[in-house]
Simulated assay, not measured.
Amino acid sequence: MRIIAASLSFLALTACGTVTRGTTEQVTFLSEPPGAAMRTSFGTGCPVTPCTLEIPRKQEFVTTFSLPGHADVQVPVTTKLSGTGGASMAGNLVAGGLIGAGVDAYHGTAYDHTPNPVIGRMVPFSSPLPARRRRAAPQS
């Protein structure tokens, strides 16, 4: 009986998304044009894009891209339930792993960041307005 209980406990814990997917996700940051500085609303960032950071799966944030001669661009990054993460949660429920399901929910392991990659499309500051066309003088 102990062997069966131990086997069920092991099965419940191995179905856990925390084990199979991890509590963090690699998020890639790109800018157009490349070379912008990037910072997140929770404090981390990269001095130059492109770059990739390891972000907690349940962390939503706003990314700000900065590049001299261009307007700053902010891109919100949200989380969504992923197909793989949903399957992990279903595996917990099928295997009877309420503990595993609780751990997954706490760590947000069923979620993925969107968008990923995060792209900051930089807009250059406006150049001076072109010279106005002169109207033709009225003919007399």
Rank of each mutant, 00 (worst) to 15 (best):
I3W: 11
I3R: 14
L8Y: 05
F10Q: 06
F10M: 13
L11M: 14
L11F: 10
A15D: 00
A15E: 04
C16G: 02
V19E: 00
V19D: 01
T23E: 14
T23Q: 13
E25R: 10
E25Y: 03
E25H: 06
V27A: 01
T28V: 15
T28Y: 07
T28S: 10
F29G: 02
P33F: 03
G35V: 09
A36D: 03
A36E: 02
A37I: 01
R39F: 05
T40F: 01
G43K: 14
P47S: 15
V48R: 14
P56H: 12
K58M: 10
Q59V: 03
Q59D: 13
E60R: 15
T64S: 11
T64K: 09
F65S: 08
F65W: 06
S66N: 04
L67A: 09
V73N: 02
V73H: 08
P76C: 05
P76Q: 11
P76H: 09
V77Y: 12
T78I: 12
G85A: 05
G86M: 08
A87P: 01
G91P: 06
N92D: 15
A95K: 06
G96V: 00
G96M: 05
G97L: 02
I99V: 14
I99W: 09
G100R: 05
G100Q: 13
V103D: 11
V103P: 01
G108E: 09
T109E: 02
Y111Q: 08
T114C: 02
P115Q: 06
P117G: 11
I119G: 04
G120N: 11
M122F: 04
M122N: 03
F125Q: 13
S126K: 12
L129Y: 11
R132I: 04
A137K: 15
A137D: 13
P138K: 02
P138R: 10
Q139Y: 06
Q139G: 01
S140M: 03
